[in-house]
Nucleic acid binder design. Structure first.
Lengths: 369, 369
DNA sequence: GCGCTTGCTGTTAGCGGTATCCGGAGGCTA
DNA sequence: TAGCCTCCGGATACCGCTAACAGCAAGCGC
């Protein structure tokens, strides 16, 4: 009688569990009027599912708040993909968005993500080698790492795959996800011009990153199209850091006549520009318009909040993790890997840091003209 | 027919996929001349196995160096903990640290973690309900979600458990992991006093978060202990946002005589203070010392970089996951759940935003004394 | 019309364990 | 010897998911 303590309390855990427990893939399948296998395909981002079906499944997933059971998945699926995220990036706010997207997706997809920071390209390459030996099959590389061709070569040599996020030289073997930096910068410049500005300063990003070039080109093209003469003094070099933004802004604000607007290649530098402007007792935006790029956290946590270009960084890294997983999978299956590329839409987010140029300036210009 | 010895060499269809190593429970059973079930019994220390049999099994286990597959075990046993991480937090950098700690620990402990962001408290509550219905048994909540008592009530109503990270009202039913905000603020204030400051302004955080109160108390206690009289004009209300920090700083810097140092309850407000100071042509730190709290990335991405208090966010969330798992387990076993609480150590990070007060001020004071 | 792809979806068979049930051996009472 | 209990241990059915394959239409060349 003493012994049956073991049986008295757990008589029907199974039945009970089914009721209270988490929804399973079959629940979703029933809800979506299809088979569990199809659901599996949808949530794993495999192809070969009609869009209509996919949507039904996704709807059902959302409705039931389904999230796949990790244990079952790794039990059935064999090995998990292991992906590393290497970063060497000055802008902390960019980075945190970046990480969030990747981490979220990795946890959803049950992918093992190794996050490593590195000091410079050389160090990055050592790490790359090291990680590959440790069984990492794929890499996600933000700029500037993904902008270096020797890094790309190394990835190939190690027989791994890589995805460039927010940049990319269009190299054949590398996956890529980015926005149209050129067009975005063009749009922003046009927006500023549309406000009435003609003397528009520009702070270039880190020259080692292709995105910096593309943004510069977009700016140049836009002022050219608007018939504004290019003024070398209004284009200064930065490095995407706050500090470099301060230096750049100091230079720009010392030019005479002063620019009425400054377009910085990222938010950190734009924030620095606002700070410098304030230090010089210039009101943003009434004395000077300041615009950024990226829409990181910083853009909306300073005052005035920045008008900027929103990159869907989170979606981009999420997609990168996804694509990397797919590429690894096809590679493991022995199929030919076709690197995936994607361009995501950006948005111009208008906030409080832009306005028409001060009347005095406009007057001055009208007198000139 | 199918089940005979002829078949025992290898499973046929997926034999190829099986990894070289990893002996299974069946391998052990074969080795010990018994059934998998008996092996399971031995491994799990259940009764009802003859000593002789038990020893055979243990020997086989040792010989094969067998260790049970966790995924399979939790799948079959239905013992898997599922925890959700809900966040509604402005600071992205705080979050990435937050996530990293949690995800790392979750994967180590084989716990399933669902990550969800929400817009506000109301939305958070909807999600909470939704997730609980979806089989989530516990929640990890950063501020401000964990500071809201109605959220806490909901957690209880849903018969789930929660852990507050970085805050907590000490409510009986909720687990908590935090730093000693009082002591940290005390230390920072003392540090500033040690530099020679006597007129130290303080910007309070969001009154809805308990941590804000604690930090204020720490500040008050420290100046009291140093024999500095409390000056109401030097203590202003903020809300943890950049904007509120600007307002607070404006107020503080208008006080006459001006404070020589300002201690803001978080980094965003400290950054705002630096901006305001610069606007007034005050040099940080030579004209005025500014210190923050949290060590978010803003602290090190503005210039000058902020002296601040670093919270070990990663360890805090790792611990939270751990504690949540334990609490869920005891709850499932039908035992009374005793919410766990923990306080972790913080660090005062000294950077470039603090210095001794300007000589003029010190002179003035010496004359006074 | 015949095969032959191609694209989409369902079916089957496990992954490595554990819960539950079942049955045989042995001991005890009547 | 029947009846019943206890101790051991095996058989079976899953847990939730996915790999591999098996349809099955539609499109295409000839």
């Amino acid at each position: 009688m003493v012994e049956d303590g073991a049986e008295d309390n757990r008589r029907k855990p199974r039945g009970a569990r089914r009721k209270a427990g988490a929804p399973t893939i079959s629940d979703v399948a029933r809800e979506a009027h299809c088979s569990p296998m199809t659901v599996s395909r949808v949530i794993n981002g495999e192809g070969n599912v009609r869009d209509a079906t996919r949507e039904q499944v996704l709807e059902a997933v959302a409705r039931l708040n389904y999230s796949p059971n990790r244990a079952a998945r790794s039990l059935a699926g064999g090995e998990q993909a292991r992906i590393a995220l290497l970063f060497d990036n000055p802008s902390a706010s960019y980075l945190s968005e970046f990480l969030m997207g990747a981490l979220e997706e990795a946890s959803r997809r049950d992918i093992q993500l190794v996050v490593q920071s590195c000091d410079n390209i050389a160090h990055g390459k050592t790490l790359l080698r090291h990680l590959a030996e440790g069984g990492i099959q794929g890499f996600i590389l933000p700029p500037p790492l993904c902008d270096d061709l020797t890094v790309l070569d190394l990835v190939n040599e190690l027989d791994t795959i890589s995805i460039a996020v927010g940049s990319g030289k269009g190299a054949g073997s590398q996956g890529e996800v980015l926005i149209d930096d050129f067009q975005a910068a063009y749009d922003m410049t046009k927006h500023i011009i549309g406000l009435g500005h003609e003397r528009i300063g520009f702070i270039i990003g880190n020259p080692e990153q292709v995105a910096a070039d593309r943004r510069l080109s977009g700016y140049l093209e836009a002022i050219k199209d608007a018939g504004i003469a290019k003024d070398e003094r209004l284009i200064v070099q930065g490095r995407f850091t706050y500090r470099s933004g301060m230096d750049g802004a100091e230079k720009l604000l010392s030019v005479n006549p002063r620019p009425t607007a400054i377009f910085a290649s990222n938010d950190d530098m734009a924030a620095a520009t606002v700070a410098v402007a304030h230090r010089r007792h210039l009101d943003v935006p009434n004395d000077i318009t300041v615009c950024g790029f990226d829409d990181t956290d910083m853009a909306s946590s300073i005052w005035p909040e920045l008008t900027t270009i929103r990159q869907p960084i989170r979606q981009m890294t999420a997609w990168a993790v996804d694509a990397a997983a797919r590429m690894i999978k096809t590679k493991r299956a022995g199929d030919r890997v076709r690197p995936e590329k994607k361009t995501l839409p950006y948005t111009l987010v208008r906030r409080e840091s832009d306005a028409a140029p001060p009347l005095a300036t406009r007057g001055a210009r009208m007198q000139e003209g």
